[in-house]
Design a protein around this nucleic acid. Structure first.
Length: 680
DNA sequence: ATAGGGTTAG
């Protein structure tokens, strides 16, 4: 009878309460909590049984015994049960046990609130605090740390004050655990002034043992980018541990001060896996994936075992530079060192393979990854999209929806991108409208840009323009840039000039606007206008984006900038390049000087077009890999049109596949053609 | 007689 009484919390809370009161009146006397000596022994016996369980399977066997021995209403046993199944990530099992418990006391509530918080059901954990208060049960010092963690994780700023007040009312404000959690919640909510206020109100703050409080605070200052204050606190604190150092290092990494971060890292007395991971992730995020990977190998040499975070960060570094071999090495390392292919690692591997040009391997790992969330699906769909595989992207999207996952604005953006790369105008419009009206997602400027690409690719320029003009939000320079690219591809100079004007109004110092304008003049051979733009740009001192290309050869990543002569095989590279140009000319290649503005400074020093970073990487790839082997190049900007054309010739002449990733998409060159169909 | 807080990632 007891077992059949379930609580469905989320559906109707007032029914729950009526249920509870009814049950309380009628069945309280049959409570099986047993205070006799024999009952205590039985209870202890089951608690040790629960603690001995290693899997949910075993736990379920103990559960059936608990039911047989009439202990399913014993709060001591049930508390242990909830915590243990939660630690096995079987949160639904924890919830079910809780729901079959008729008169939960504060211990049982604390257990479920903690379990929900530990299993990222933050909203639900707060709902249980509310329920607890409704049942007139007093939350205590054991309740709040988890509730506060949930509020921080939910970024629920509106809750902060109410929880703080409740804590004060219940008189647990100065419990050290509650205190740390309170400070940490304000940190997560990015309320630095309140964080500091709570810290300064803490009487114990200068005593030994308050290290956590200081660490949380240093982390808060680091997140807020106030490294001056973080450093001061670090110096002033009564004692330090590895986490203190780690938090400060992370802060310097966040403000891109690699030197200070490194200095601290080398100076710290003891490094743990977090220290190494923080450095690795910091290098990777600050555009130095090579040093990031070096960190990974160094930590292995030092015998530090990486954890999931480390692996994800290392894979992300590979992804940035297209280091396929390094990525495969990490994949092997993970498989043979007892790492589980969980959601985080699975997603990172999918991203790595796809962005290194191995879309089939990405798809395989995606299938092997059993735990998928919205992010996992988004990454896969996004990858199909940038590879121009719109059919797979659309299929994947439908499969995602059929598993019950609701699309968000990011995944819709991926789908629209897929449509625009394949000219699926009508299909794209259907998704766009479905996003707004079925899923009630408000489109962002990025979605509108995608639609402009969509019309543009299909050559429907008038529709693209009227679409921009009818947008409910103000068009930015990126969207005009999209229109501009469409005009260039379809040689509509009048509309291109309009777009270019808009771009220059919105972003007068942005190099893109000059490049755009120069490109369009070059496309129709108005060379004096090209020169005029170049001079304007020079006079205004517009800085160029440094363009670089990466290529991995034998597990080693080589990077090139335009006009680069720093590589040790530089001479051979330029010889090969000359040979390529000559060969291509015989086949009809003409240097497309409309693209020189990409590297205006080098133009003065070098033969600008001829030494773009992607061409150097290509030449190096050709001379340093065996014939027939595919060449993979990663470029940080959009590939230049002249290089794009050269790649086509090169793929034909060398009889090789060239896989080039630029900032926007993948280009697969084969037999003189590219999968992007010359529109990107 | 039940029990707990911070640092790294996509």
């Amino acid at each position: 009878m007891f077992r059949n009484v379930g609580w469905s919390f989320l559906k109707n809370k007032s029914t729950i309460l009526q249920n509870h009161n009814h049950i309380a009146k009628n069945f309280y006397s049959i409570s099986t909590e047993n205070h006799s000596h024999g009952g205590f022994q039985l209870q202890s016996h089951f608690i040790s049984l629960i603690h001995a369980c290693k899997t949910t399977q075993q736990l379920k066997q103990v559960h059936s015994q608990i039911l047989l021995h009439n202990l399913s209403q014993n709060s001591w046993v049930i508390t242990q049960f909830i915590s243990t199944s939660s630690s096995f990530k079987s949160i639904n099992y924890s919830i079910s046990i809780f729901q079959h418990f008729l008169h939960p006391n504060s211990f049982v509530f604390n257990a479920i609130i903690r379990a929900l918080s530990d299993n990222t059901q933050f909203q639900n954990s707060i709902s249980h605090l509310v329920l607890m208060l409704r049942l007139n049960l007093k939350p205590d010092r054991q309740t709040f740390p988890f509730v506060l963690k949930s509020a921080g994780a939910l970024f629920a700023g509106g809750l902060a004050g109410a929880l703080h007040a409740q804590i004060a009312i219940l008189g647990v404000e100065f419990d050290s655990f509650v205190r740390v959690s309170l400070v940490d919640m304000y940190v997560k909510l990015e309320m630095l002034d309140l964080t500091l206020r709570v810290f300064h109100e803490t009487p114990e703050r200068n005593k030994l043992g308050s290290i956590l409080l200081w660490n949380v605070l240093i982390n808060g200052c680091s997140r807020a980018g106030d490294l001056g204050q973080a450093s001061e606190l670090f110096e002033a604190m009564p004692e330090r541990n590895t986490a203190s150092w780690n938090s400060l290092i992370n802060g310097f990494m966040r403000i891109r001060d690699l030197e200070r971060a490194m200095e601290l890292f080398f100076r710290m007395p003891e490094k743990n896996v977090v220290s190494w991971t923080t450095m690795l992730a910091g290098f990777s995020q600050n555009g130095d994936p090579e040093r990031a990977l070096a960190m990974f190998h160094r930590m292995l040499e030092e015998g530090v075992r990486p954890n999931d975070h480390t692996v994800v960060s290392a894979l992300s570094a590979c992804t940035r530079v297209g280091a396929l071999e390094a990525g495969v090495w990490i994949h092997n390392y993970v498989s043979s060192n007892g790492f589980r292919l969980n959601r985080e690692i699975g997603t990172a591997l999918v991203d790595m393979y796809a962005k290194c040009g191995k879309i089939e391997s990405a798809s395989r790992v995606f299938c092997e990854t059993k735990e998928k969330n919205l992010l996992t699906w988004s990454v896969m769909i996004w990858c199909w999209a940038i590879h121009g595989c719109s059919e797979q992207a659309l299929q994947c999207f439908e499969r995602m929806k059929s598993t019950g996952i609701k699309p968000d604005e990011v995944v819709v953006l991926a789908i629209l991108t897929a449509c625009s790369h394949s000219g699926l105008v009508d299909q794209g419009l259907i998704f766009f409208n479905s996003m707004r009206f079925d899923h009630l997602i408000e489109p962002t400027v990025k979605h509108y840009t995608c639609l402009v690409d969509l019309f543009g690719w299909a050559g429907r320029l008038e529709e693209a323009l009227s679409f921009i003009e009818s947008m409910p939000i103000k068009p930015d320079f990126v969207i005009w840039g999209a229109l501009f690219c469409a005009c260039r591809a379809h040689k509509n100079i009048k509309m291109a000039e309009l777009a270019s004007e808009k771009i220059q109004q919105l972003e007068p110092r942005h190099i893109g606007s000059y490049i755009f304008l120069s490109n369009i003049y070059a496309a129709v051979g108005r060379w004096e206008d090209v020169e005029r733009v170049r001079l304007t740009m020079k006079n205004r001192g517009v800085e160029k984006d440094p363009g670089w290309s990466y290529i991995e050869v034998e597990g080693q990543v080589h990077s090139f900038v335009a006009g680069d002569r720093g590589h040790k095989r530089s001479e051979d590279i330029y010889l090969k390049l000359e040979e390529l140009v000559l060969g291509a000319r015989e086949q009809g290649y003409m240097p497309d000087t409309g693209w020189v503005l990409h590297n205006i400074e080098e133009e003065e020093k070098e033969d600008a077009l001829g030494s773009h970073s992607e061409k150097l990487a290509l030449a190096f790839g050709l001379i340093s890999t065996p014939p027939g082997m595919a060449i993979r190049i990663v470029k940080n900007l959009r590939v230049c049109g002249d290089c794009h054309s050269m790649m086509k010739y090169a793929s034909k002449m060398s009889n090789r596949e060239i896989i080039l990733r630029d900032i926007k998409r993948f280009h697969h060159f084969k037999d003189g053609a590219c999968t992007c169909m010359d529109y990107w």
